[in-house]
Design a protein around this nucleic acid. Structure first.
Lengths: 152, 152
DNA sequence: TGCATATAGATGCAATTGCATCTACCGTCA
DNA sequence: TGACGGTAGATGCAATTGCATCTATATGCA
């Protein structure tokens, strides 16, 4: 087999940078959001998916697939979002176990306000550091690390 | 000013992939460690830094700089590591407030066992997906996103 | 020296996460 | 139909994180 138990120095270095950079970037964004009195990044992820989904909403298990959050995590996050009036839970007709989550107007508004901060952070932290071509290269390389890999 | 409030599509895409991939990779490694009955990744980070530092050890604030963990996080993580006998806390001569943290033999052993799992994950998840040149490219690009940027 | 301010690290308490499990409903197949 | 395994989501409890603050020592400076 070609699988190696010991990673190459190049792999270790790329890994280490990936870990460090992603942590640093997440922290920067979280700080910026807090600074603006806004909810944490996790809320954005969910609101974003729900906004994209539109009026039809999404089932919690679909949110899990899209966001990679754990099931219990989504369950509680949705409870918090609902308590804040940012989403609403609707019963779903053909499956008595489930529910559909729909973003509310207030939820869209919160998402919009978060994006002004989040988007600016992305522009500064990433957009401002690499050219468009470099960003594309980066996306391509990262896509190959995804599971399943994205081959574009 | 050249700073933009709205990120380019390329920046957004690179960001999204970075977020998703890093989460996915961390989760894979955490799962592998758990599977092996080993402590979480955070322990490795600290043990690694301490092992590199050698007999002289490191002050907690140096660990904070190196690992990016929050101060209270390091404080408690070190308490757990000490409780497990993986590190020892020594008073420091010229600063009565501080202490020096040194890895123990048991700590080195734990780190070694973690590395067999961690290293294999890196080899599979990263080393196995990109060529050496691609890994170098990736490191270079990520280095530019670091703060402070690494220009190599 | 003596006070103000800064730094190193710990900690009480609230919020969140992780784990395991639970409830409720669904689908299948005898 | 009805027993059974599977899926959707919630939840009790322990561990961890985040926040704010606290203690203790160090440092700068009048």
């Amino acid at each position: 087999m070609t699988e190696k138990a010991t990673p190459s120095p190049e792999a270790i270095k790329a890994w280490a940078r990936l870990m460090r950079v992603s942590r640093q970037l997440v922290e920067s964004v979280e700080d910026a959001l807090k600074e603006g009195g806004l909810p944490p990044l996790a809320w954005y992820d969910v609101l974003h998916e729900l906004a994209e989904a539109g009026e039809g909403g999404l089932r919690p298990f679909q949110l899990i697939e899209r966001t990679l959050f754990a099931q219990y995590n989504i369950s509680r996050l949705l409870a918090r979002l609902e308590a804040d009036g940012l989403v609403e839970k609707l019963p779903v007709a053909d499956d008595g176990r489930g529910q559909t989550i729909r973003i509310t107007a207030k939820g869209r508004e919160t998402r919009r306000r978060m994006w002004t901060v989040y988007g600016r952070s992305i522009a500064e932290l990433v957009g401002g550091k690499l050219s468009a071509d470099e960003l594309k290269m980066m996306s391509t390389l990262l896509g190959r690390l995804r599971d399943p890999p994205v081959l574009d």
